[in-house]
Amino acid sequence: MTKTKPFLRWAGGKNWFTKYIEEFLPNEFNNYYEPFLGGGSIFFYLKSKGFIKNKSYLSDTNSELINTYRVIKSNTDDLIKLLKKQRDNEYQYYLIRSQNFDNPIEQAAKFIYLNKTSFNGIYRVNKDGKYNVPYGKRNLKNLYDFDHFYEISKMLEKTYLSTTDFKNRCKQIDINDFVFIDPPYTVAHENNGFVQYNQSIFTWKNQVQLSKIAQVLDYKNAHFLITNAYHQSIKDIYINGKQIPISRSSTIGGLGAKRTKYKELLITNIKNEN
């Protein structure tokens, strides 16, 4: 079966990890959870490949992102009607960026358009919560593959989408469920121990809370796979499960940015018998 690709460009996304994910999956699991959804690379891969057979609980603190997923799931035709009117040019970009919509379908169309045509697909807002990423000058003749949106909508069947905080979402995980956790890569003693995550701050305290959640999940006999920064402070607080370093090529950066290989850390309690 062909894998379904994400419909969004997402900084920090895990599309690169799909080539490795099958090595770390439990042999079977009940429901699937992903509390830092972002572009959803891992979810779409697992769902399209048939690994997710039951319900999926997908969440993220970015309410505009979750609204967009909900609209694609339930209002695909109406969304596509709006997307067909859009064009990739600087005038329309800043016009759409400046507009506010109360209608969730119009807001989703705006979110998708800005993600497609902005500089590097970055999601960034100012202190007033306004999206402020500049125009990307991509010169796209065909903005969208509309068949892809219908494919995405099908993948979102049997999913429950929410803006639930990761701590509350993880409380719902039960025995034999599987959770993929891709938090912001906060480490101790760097940038004062926090990073900007969507419109909220993900602190070192949150990272410690997440490590304790991993202990609870292990106690519940739930399966977890966590991606994180390869850093001693991370190694020290995650005491449950195996810690596996993995290298990949960095693809995030502006024009002329140096592409380097660096390590990330996988933390998992899954005992793969394959």
Rank of each mutant, 00 (worst) to 15 (best):
M1G: 12
F7L: 04
L8E: 01
R9N: 08
A11S: 04
F17N: 06
F17C: 05
F17K: 04
I21K: 08
F24K: 05
L25W: 10
L25V: 02
E28L: 03
F29P: 01
N30Y: 13
Y32C: 00
P35D: 06
F36Y: 09
L37C: 04
G39S: 05
G39H: 07
G40C: 00
I42E: 02
F43R: 03
Y45A: 08
K47R: 15
S48K: 08
K53H: 00
K55P: 01
L58N: 02
S59A: 13
D60G: 02
D60W: 06
S63A: 14
N67F: 05
Y69P: 03
I72D: 00
N75C: 08
D77C: 00
D78S: 11
L82R: 12
L83E: 06
K85D: 10
Q86A: 11
N89I: 08
E90C: 10
Y93L: 01
I96W: 13
S98A: 14
N100R: 12
N100E: 15
N103T: 06
N103L: 04
E106D: 13
Q107K: 15
Q107D: 14
Q107V: 03
F111H: 02
I112F: 04
L114H: 01
L114D: 01
S118M: 04
G121F: 09
R124G: 08
R124D: 06
V125A: 07
K127I: 13
Y131F: 15
N132K: 04
V133R: 07
L140Q: 08
N142D: 14
N142W: 13
N142H: 14
L143F: 09
L143P: 03
Y144I: 00
D145Y: 10
D147M: 12
F149N: 05
F149L: 02
E151P: 00
S153D: 03
K154S: 09
M155R: 09
T159N: 06
S162V: 08
T164H: 00
D165F: 07
F166R: 07
N168S: 13
K171H: 11
I173R: 02
D174C: 13
D174H: 11
I175F: 12
F180M: 02
D182C: 01
P184C: 09
P184F: 07
T186W: 02
N191C: 10
N192G: 05
G193S: 05
F194H: 11
V195C: 05
Y197P: 02
Y197H: 01
W204E: 07
K205S: 10
N206H: 11
N206M: 03
Q207L: 09
V208L: 13
L210H: 04
I213N: 00
Q215G: 14
Q215A: 14
V216G: 00
V216Q: 12
L217M: 05
K220S: 06
K220M: 06
N221V: 01
A222N: 07
F224S: 03
L225A: 01
N228V: 02
A229M: 05
H231D: 15
H231Q: 03
S233Y: 09
Y238L: 06
N240I: 10
G241I: 07
S247R: 15
I252T: 09
I252P: 03
I252E: 10
A257F: 13
K258S: 13
T260L: 12
T260F: 15
K261I: 12
K261E: 15
T268C: 01
T268K: 10
N269M: 06
N269S: 02
K271V: 13
K271I: 14
K271S: 12
N272T: 13
N274R: 13
